[in-house]
């Protein structure tokens, strides 16, 4: 087994765990945790491919920086939604947020 394959397996496992969490949890903050894990799995893939395919090109690291920014933004927006929801309804349970359905 090569480090690339090991890293890709780790990324896939993290993505699967995050997907399970994002779909199964009812609390907004727990759903955000699942999304964070999925993005973490994507970052592992990006770093592994950068390191083992084109280590001389730093565009791969730039992609990871973009994903990190998306993670930070997701947390900021998610916490904003959580605060607004908690103020309006007193709960961040997504089972009770049926009015948000499209």
């Amino acid at each position: 087994m090569t480090p690339l394959l090991a890293a890709l397996l780790v990324g896939a496992a993290l993505f699967g765990i995050g997907l399970y969490g994002a779909l199964s949890q009812t609390n907004l903050v727990m759903i955000m945790m699942g999304v964070e894990l999925m993005l973490g799995g994507a970052m592992v893939n990006l770093v592994a491919f950068w390191r083992h395919l084109h280590p001389e090109v730093y565009a791969g690291q730039m992609f990871v920086l973009i994903v990190m920014t998306v993670m930070a933004l997701e947390a900021a927006v998610g916490f904003g939604v959580a605060i607004a929801r908690f103020r309006a309804k007193g709960s961040v349970e997504m089972e009770e947020a049926a009015e948000l359905r499209g």
């Binding site: 765990i17 995050g18 997907l19 969490g21 949890q25 009812t26 609390n27």
Partner: peptide
Amino acid sequence: EMTHQKRTARAAGRSGAWP
């Protein structure tokens, strides 16, 4: 109990992680 649709989530997670 803080979870719902566990079977669907488990199947989706498995298909996302499994090569």
